[in-house]
């Protein structure tokens, strides 16, 4: 593929970030006109060639984080750089050029429902290259072989099971040999077998292709087995980060609650409300 390695080699002055592919620096983000604050002062460094897990309770806006990195959303403050380039300072065409070097596996798979599996995977190649159909065929077959779906290439996405759809989407995400793959909840709603398959695939792809991976999830057990580095987000910012072993031994109460799945703790079981007695007896707003 003609992914633009040339521009990646032109590194700006950020010597300290030589090992980081994505740097998130102190961002604020809110949906709408400040109606719903998602992040306040969030910072992260995603090391190159490693698997970084981003964890946190549901509804914390983890998908939002991936969209910010892909520059589909724009933070109100702070910057995000990918391979030394500030993604939000790029013009439209430069941004689309940059996005060829990153790739995202969506929670739903997001396969195009009006094309076969084969055409889905061939789609990004056809869009971004002038390769002859013969070569595209070879590439697509190799990508499908990697996820074990070479036999399913003539099926429509509707005919695939959830796990197979996600694997097909993974094959499509790899089609252009990106430098970064972002996985949005890759384990959600999967049976144990397909979960195992996906864990294995993420690990293998990362090792064999030297990819950088960001895995956003709340499935603690699965992701800790493969992650090289872990960030835990809660309350609009990073509350803990480190290697899996470091975090296991962390004495931060919030980190501890999250990793061990305790029902109550710093993240309360109850949604913010007046006390039960007050609510039942006082009946202020019945």
């Amino acid at each position: 593929m003609h992914t633009a390695h040339s521009s990646a080699s032109v590194k700006p002055e950020t010597h300290a970030d030589d090992d980081a592919l994505v740097v998130i620096d102190d961002i604020d983000f809110a949906h709408g006109f400040g109606a719903h604050q998602v992040y306040r002062g969030l910072s992260m460094r995603i090391p190159k060639g490693k698997i970084t897990a981003v964890m946190g309770p549901s509804g914390i806006g983890k998908t939002t984080l991936l969209r910010l990195i892909g520059a589909q959303l724009r933070p109100q403050r702070g910057s995000i750089t990918f391979a030394g380039e500030n993604v939000h300072a790029l013009g439209r065409s430069d941004l689309y050029e940059l996005r060829k070097r990153m790739s995202m596996l969506f929670q739903s798979g997001a396969l195009f429902t009006d094309m076969t599996v084969y055409d889905n995977i061939a789609f990004p190649i056809r869009e971004h290259s002038q390769l002859p159909e013969e070569i595209i065929k070879t590439i697509v077959k190799m990508k499908l072989e990697a996820v074990g779906l070479r036999g399913a290439r003539h099926l429509m996405p509707a005919e695939l099971s959830g796990g197979m759809a996600r694997r097909a989407a993974l094959a499509r995400a790899m089609a252009l040999d990106p430098e970064l793959i972002m996985y949005d909840e890759p384990f959600a709603g999967q049976d144990p077998i397909s979960m195992g398959v996906i864990v294995k695939l993420i690990k293998e792809l990362n090792e064999s292709l030297g990819l950088t991976s960001i895995v956003v999830t709340h499935d603690v057990a699965e992701v800790l087995t493969i992650a090289d580095y872990v960030y835990i987000i809660a309350d609009k910012k990073v509350i803990g980060h480190g290697t899996p072993t470091e975090l296991q031994e962390s004495d931060n109460a919030l980190v501890h609650q999250f990793l061990h799945g305790e029902a109550d703790g710093p993240v309360p079981f109850h949604y913010a409300a007046p006390s039960l007695a007050e609510d039942l007896l006082g009946a202020k707003d019945a």
Partner: peptide, 9 residues
């Protein structure tokens, strides 16, 4: 699917 198109450039 729309987001995915965008992310594919």
């Amino acid at each position: 699917q729309l987001s995915s198109l965008e992310m594919m450039g």
